[in-house]
Amino acid sequence: MRAPSARVIYWAATLGGAVPGLWLWWQYHTGALGVVPDEVLLHQTGRFGLTFLMGTLAIGFAHFLTGWGVIFAARRPLGVWAFAYALSHALIWGWFDQGGTLAFMRMEIAKMRHVQLGLAALLLMAPLALSSFNAAQRMMTLRRWKWLHLLTWPTAVLAVFHAWSVARFEAPLVTAMGAALALMMLTRLFTLAQGRRPRPR
């Protein structure tokens, strides 16, 4: 991350990622989230998490389109924010939606497909978030680190499926997200296949 532009992009993503959360926090405390604010907190943090997760994948896609490598500087902060919002989404679910009652949470996890999907996505994302520092990369070697971080793809599939199971009137939006995910996945496979071919000198 030596290029000054990379540094700018990195810090923009690192600081910018906090903006939606801070804005939500402000609205919550000023009573701007309507008469049932907890539900808005739950839905919004989920949307933020999904959007940031898709954002991390979109970085690779943008690189494929433009060939501009510097934007990779934004990927890690976006990924960490995706996890942060997903985690707060899960905590809000447990504390507000389930009223902090463990028995209710256990039942929801046992019976509700969307809860299972969401939880699975969060668990898949956890090792990615925990290995999001340079030392981790060195400790496990870049090769294995990159391999581990391919988990982003199944995480995104689970997250989109999770959102789709709870979306009612926003279903077309989630379907579009799923389509975008499929497109990005195909592009990634295409570039992988390209990479394997011996390059002309």
Binding site: V36, Q98, G99, G100, T101, M107, M112
Partner: peptide
């Protein structure tokens, strides 16, 4: 008797009686 997409065992009591 559950709904095909969710169970009906508990409810959120608005606002703010938690979940019962």
């Amino acid at each position: 008797v559950r709904h095909p997409r969710w169970h009906q065992a508990t409810e959120r009591r608005l606002h703010d009686g938690g979940r019962i």
